[in-house]
C-alpha cells in the first residue's frame, strides 16, 4: 500500500532522482528522510560524498495510514478500547490531502471531552505528527459518534436563538468563547441575516462572537 524505498546517491538531490525514477513518480510527490550522510572527500569536491535516504510517495493512502496509526497508538496507550477507521481520504485541488478518521469507542463521552476538547486535542496532535512526516499540506479530521455534525447543529440553533434576542432587545449579544471552527459555524449560520451582523472580539482562547443588530432598517443589510 505504501511504497517506501531506500536509495543512495552523491547528494540528496541525486538520491531523490533515483527514487523518483524507480517509483515512477515526480520528485515533488516524494517525502524523504536522510538516513546516512558520509563525506570522504578531502577538500569538499564532493567526490566521496554519499547520502542514503528513505523515500516514500505522498499519497492520500500513505497519509491516512500514518494518521490512523498515530491515533490508534495514542488510544492504546490511554487504555481505551477503541478502533480507528479511515472514513474518507482525498487530494483536493489546492494540493491538500484530507483524511477523515472516525474513532469507534464505547460511547462514554470520554473521547469527546468538554465541548469536544479531547477530540480537538487528538486532532491537533495527529495533524502535527502527520504533517511532520509528510512535510505539510495534510489535514486530518477526527470525529467520533457523529459529534462534529451534532455540535454544528447545536451551535447553529444557539446562533439563531441569540440573533432573535439581539433583534428584539436591539442590543449586542455575546457568546461564550469558542474555537475558531465553532466561531466560523456561528458566523456562517447568521451570514444571510441582514438584520444583524456578527463580529469576533477578544484574543486567543478568549475570542468570542458578538451578534450586533444592524443600525438602520432591514432591507439593505450591512453598510
Amino acid at each position: 500500500m505504501t511504497d517506501v524505498i531506500e536509495k543512495e546517491g552523491k547528494s540528496v538531490e541525486n538520491a531523490l532522482e533515483k527514487a523518483s525514477n524507480e517509483l515512477g513518480v515526480a520528485k515533488e510527490d516524494l517525502v524523504y528522510e536522510v538516513l546516512e550522510e558520509t563525506d570522504r572527500s578531502f577538500i569538499g569536491i564532493g567526490m566521496g560524498k554519499k547520502v542514503k535516504i528513505r523515500a516514500m510517495v505522498k499519497t492520500p493512502e500513505a497519509v491516512a495510514d500514518t494518521a490512523k496509526k498515530a491515533l490508534s497508538t495514542i488510544l492504546e496507550y490511554m487504555g481505551v478500547d477503541a478502533v480507528v477507521e479511515v472514513k474518507d481520504k482525498m487530494l483536493t485541488e489546492d494540493d491538500v490531502i484530507h483524511v477523515y478518521l472516525e474513532i469507534i469507542g464505547d460511547g462514554s463521552g470520554l473521547l469527546i471531552g468538554k465541548h469536544g476538547a479531547t477530540l480537538d486535542a487528538f486532532q491537533h496532535l495527529v495533524n502535527k505528527i502527520t504533517n511532520r512526516k509528510f512535510s505539510g499540506n495534510c489535514n486530518i479530521h477526527v470525529d467520533t459518534e457523529n459529534y462534529r455534525k451534532k455540535r454544528e447543529e447545536n451551535l447553529t440553533q444557539l446562533a439563531m436563538r441569540l440573533s432573535e434576542k439581539a433583534k428584539k432587545t436591539r442590543k449586542p449579544v455575546s457568546l461564550v468563547p469558542l474555537s475558531a471552527k465553532d466561531r466560523k459555524t456561528v458566523h456562517m449560520a447568521l451570514k444571510e441575516d441582514k438584520e444583524i451582523q456578527t463580529k469576533s472580539t477578544g484574543n486567543g482562547l478568549l475570542k468570542r462572537v458578538v451578534i450586533i443588530p444592524s443600525k438602520h432598517a432591514t432591507q439593505d443589510g450591512p453598510n
Partner: peptide
C-alpha cells in the same frame, strides 16, 4: 500559544480520569 502542550495535557487528563 501553547496549543500542543495543552493538547497533550487534555489527552493526559482524559486518560487519568478513566
Amino acid at each position: 500559544q501553547g496549543r500542543t502542550a495543552r493538547a497533550i495535557r487534555t489527552i493526559l487528563s482524559a486518560a487519568s480520569t478513566k
